[in-house]
């Protein structure tokens, strides 16, 4: 890697990190799975890089009053293999296991993926379906942002330059909730051409709760509210699922690129939405 020259800081605590960000025009480095390639290609040339990699507080997994708090620096591998995460929030663990390859899963982080907001990243689909909350910390304050307000556009989030993500807050799944993440892989990068995360809970003979998050189809990940509305209250039959899945791209401007046209992406989104829902049921 031959990047342009940059200054480098490696804070040991969150406070040191946000102090650095308050004083410098800096880019935050976590696992480096997105920033490093951009710097290698000189598409990104930050003057200052603040490396969060040695902050121990940011790799914790804690359960607190029905919520699971995942530190932003948890690697995909840690999320995928944590027994606690697998038990309390299996969707995020399953999704993490789909990301990239072994090397990427050992280096890439939950917070880094969320902050980068690649339109084809896997995590955002699950985070949307989970109605995750994101804790953002800056020098003198902090705030918690709903995931619906977090992903703004391709590669754009609600994170301000002086802020870092410290944790993602996910719901502990209620008993009886089925989850699934289904994706069509882009063969070169392993990112999702389309990825769909589903959480479904039945009550009696009907679907009481449906949450569907979609990545890859649009400029940023989103909750497919139309699909959820059609599913909730239905019996969840094959026909119900097919009908509901057809709504996944309603009002969406679909991406088109070398690997898939927008029409094909829309079609695959419907197919994979149905598959994710059926797998979750």
């Amino acid at each position: 890697m031959i990047p342009q020259e940059f200054n480098y800081s490696r804070p040991g605590t969150v406070q040191e990190a946000v102090d650095l960000l308050a004083d410098h025009d800096a880019k935050v480095l976590a696992g480096g799975m997105s920033l490093i390639p951009l710097m290698k290609l000189r598409l990104s040339a930050p003057e200052h890089v603040v490396d969060l990699g040695r902050i121990p507080d940011l790799s914790r997994i804690t359960e607190n009053e029905g919520s699971l708090h995942l530190g932003a620096l948890l690697t995909h591998h840690q999320v995928a293999t944590s027994a606690l995460v697998q038990e309390k929030c299996p969707l995020i663990a399953e999704t993490a296991a789909h990301i990239g390859d072994a090397q990427v899963r050992n280096m890439g982080t939950l917070g880094g993926s969320a902050a980068h907001a690649d339109p084809a990243a896997d995590y955002p689909a699950a985070l949307c379906a989970l109605e995750a909350k994101v804790r953002l910390v800056r020098k003198d304050s902090e705030r918690v942002v709903d995931i619906g307000d977090f992903f703004v556009d391709a590669l754009t989030t609600a994170v301000e330059p002086e802020e870092i993500i410290t944790e993602l807050i996910l719901p502990v799944e209620e008993a009886g909730t089925g989850v699934s993440y289904q994706k069509l892989r882009q063969p070169a990068s392993g990112f999702a051409i389309v990825g769909v995360a589903a959480r479904i809970r039945r009550d009696g003979g009907r679907i009481a709760m449906a949450r569907v998050g979609v990545t890859g189809l649009a400029a940023s990940a989103y909750r497919a509210a139309g699909v959820e509305a059609l599913l909730e209250g239905s019996e969840g039959s094959q026909a119900d699922v097919a009908g509901a899945s057809a709504a996944v791209d309603e009002g969406i401007e679909a991406i088109s690129d070398l690997h898939a046209s927008s029409d094909y992406r829309r079609h695959v989104a419907r197919v994979y939405t149905a598959r994710a829902i059926l797998a979750a049921l």
């Binding site: 390639p37 290609l41 390859d101 882009q186 063969p187 070169a188 990068s189 070398l258 690997h259």
Partner: peptide
Amino acid sequence: VTGEYMDYALPKAAM
């Protein structure tokens, strides 16, 4: 267009 392995799809072992 295919100037990186992000877009040039060389098969990996698992493929």
